[in-house]
Design a protein around this nucleic acid. Structure first.
Lengths: 226, 226
DNA sequence: CGCAATATTTGACCATGGTCAAATCTGATC
DNA sequence: GATCAGATTTGACCATGGTCAAATATTGCG
């Protein structure tokens, strides 16, 4: 968030207007086929006005992604109120993201553009996106909080589920099957499998495996140090 | 591979020269800080000559990635000749990629730029990069071919190991620990763990799990239909 | 060789993302 | 309602990735 937050209400209006106009155009013609000039013209502002609110063209997509995250938070909060079954909650969290983005897969793809460039402010795994990433993970924390489980799993699961979601999201983008059912089914299947494994967690044979996993991830700094 | 293959030897010379010049500059100043004009000047050709050989600036990085793959093939072939222990072979395949790219992490990151855009010719998961992806996976096929194992695992493992490698590669890019040891250790640890699980594979409790995994991946078309 | 076909090379040009300093608006304060 | 600081808006401008048609070199072949 560099300087793209308007300080006054007027600014907020303009920002929203530019954002909405841009999204409409992106949806109609595709991100790369829409010029900032075109966005500005359609929104009846100068091109530099658009850049006053969004540091780059991709930043508009970032704003879109944040909007999606807001929606997911909202929708999941509702679902969570309805069910305390953590498996259902997790599944609904997972599917909600798909539901919300299914018509915007082209746009969503742009979010991944700087995945390999840690220093880029829009890198989806970088510092600049840490806040939204946390929120994304937090949904899974909330989803499983109805289930009593050992501390290590409680720490591990949200991260694991979030990673799964990221992976599936990419598959989702490539999935040409009608309604992306292939991805949906893989999501369901993987969760199903996870719960089976979760049930086996207490099994003596798997104890050392589980311990090893957490210690590995701790060493890799994916989990907080003990 | 659009039209970037020179037909004559002269062309091949020029191509190589432009490629080498570009890489040197990229390494010195970073991909985004080097203009195609600069590359062309340094190589003493016109900018459009560069574009005659490489359809885009990123395509030069793609060529870099292919060179790395060639090297990996070569190096692994040697290692494989030395050991028939599949665990060692897999580990060496994994580490070789890190070894070869450790000084070019910035460049490597560019390879991931179109991950989210299936239609882009340089999408690292798309059609346009299928050939090199296959080679990347094939290394793991060769790595494990010394070990007798059930058909399903034989199919599954190379893909799983390749995915692991891709994931680790991204972590590698973000890893600021000296020599990227964190990633190296996670790689070793994960492999170690995998072999433990592999040993447990025959265990009755895990049978259904294993069956489920393969059937899931088959349905998702990550594995060939039966 | 001479010449046609093909590969290579070039410079002029375009489109677009992004910058910037100056102009204008807004709203709080006296 | 005059003033001032800060927010907003603007148009002119720049840098650079990429295109293209024309010019030139190369090669294979009668």
């Amino acid at each position: 968030m560099v300087k793209s937050d308007p300080s006054t209400d007027k600014g907020e209006q303009t920002r929203r207007h530019i954002y909405a106009t841009a999204l409409t155009l992106f949806r109609e013609r595709g991100f790369d086929n829409v010029t900032m000039q075109a966005v500005a013209e359609q929104a009846k502002v100068a091109k530099s006005a658009a850049y006053y609110y969004f540091p780059s063209k991709e930043a508009i997509i970032q704003a879109y992604y944040e909007a999606v995250q807001n929606e997911q938070d909202r929708v999941c909060e509702e679902h969570f109120a309805e069910s305390s079954d953590f498996k259902k909650r997790v599944a609904s969290a997972m599917h909600t993201k798909f539901d919300l983005t299914k018509d915007d897969r082209k746009l969503l793809g742009v979010v991944f553009r700087y995945t390999g460039e840690p220093a880029h402010p829009l890198s989806c795994l970088g510092k600049g996106t840490e806040a939204i990433r946390r929120r994304s993970i937090a949904i899974f924390e909330r989803a499983i909080e109805t289930e009593r489980m050992p501390k290590d799993l409680q720490e591990l699961l949200p991260l694991a589920l979030w990673s799964l979601q990221m992976g599936l999201l990419i598959m989702f983008l490539y999935d040409e099957s009608p309604n992306q059912q292939r991805t949906r089914k893989l999501a369901d299947g993987t969760l199903d499998l996870s719960w089976k494994l979760y049930a086996l967690t207490k099994l003596p044979v798997l104890r050392p495996v589980r311990a090893k996993i957490t210690s590995l991830l701790r060493a890799a700094q994916f989990l907080p140090a003990v």
